[in-house]
Design a protein around this nucleic acid. Sequence first.
DNA 1: CGCATGTATCCCATTTTGGGTTATCCTAAA
DNA 2: TTTAGGATAACCCAAAATGGGATACATGCG
Lengths: 93, 93
Amino acid sequence: MDSWQVSKSIFTTEYAVFRDLLRELRTEKGLTQVQLSETLGMPQSFVSKYETGERRLDVIELREVCKSLGATLAAFAKKLETRLAESKKGGAA
Amino acid sequence: MDSWQVSKSIFTTEYAVFRDLLRELRTEKGLTQVQLSETLGMPQSFVSKYETGERRLDVIELREVCKSLGATLAAFAKKLETRLAESKKGGAA
DNA sequence: CGCATGTATCCCATTTTGGGTTATCCTAAA
DNA sequence: TTTAGGATAACCCAAAATGGGATACATGCG
């Protein structure tokens, strides 16, 4: 592990919470990255990249991902805000 | 039903609805791009760019914008989904 | 018209992305 | 332990997107 400084702000706590939630949603559904990627019509590396923070997701993309995971964008946003609020306090659960 | 794919273009109907909503929220608050940009600590071109679709917003960024507009991400997402559902039917009003 | 306010566009070096392929990790079976 | 296989991460690098100050354009007003 050498230099790890991809960009200015993808590696803040907020992005970490966001990524963790997305990955959690996928594994909860019992899906692999490959399975999800097929539903999305994207390569596996796409899923891997956004879950590891190598690539960003814009809102419409996130909506597609949520759909494929059986969630709505609004529900996801709600959960995200809850998590972010939690992480502000105690931190890890 | 066809399946959805992650779109490659920023100029689909969905992105348009998204951008319109974001701009609407700003003007409703009676804010100019300059005023909003100052709250965000970004240049005016940043606001102009995402409102015109020249630049994408990821979720954390959107959250900041929403905050500066006095809204939560969840509330925004809800509105967005409503709009998208509407646009699927009749379209523009 | 002349000025002010608001927004879009320019420019272009720097970053980020796309995605097929390959390497690495993990677990369970032999 | 070795091996197989599945899951995920990392590679590579051409092509595309971004950042943001400066500047052009649009509109309203006196």
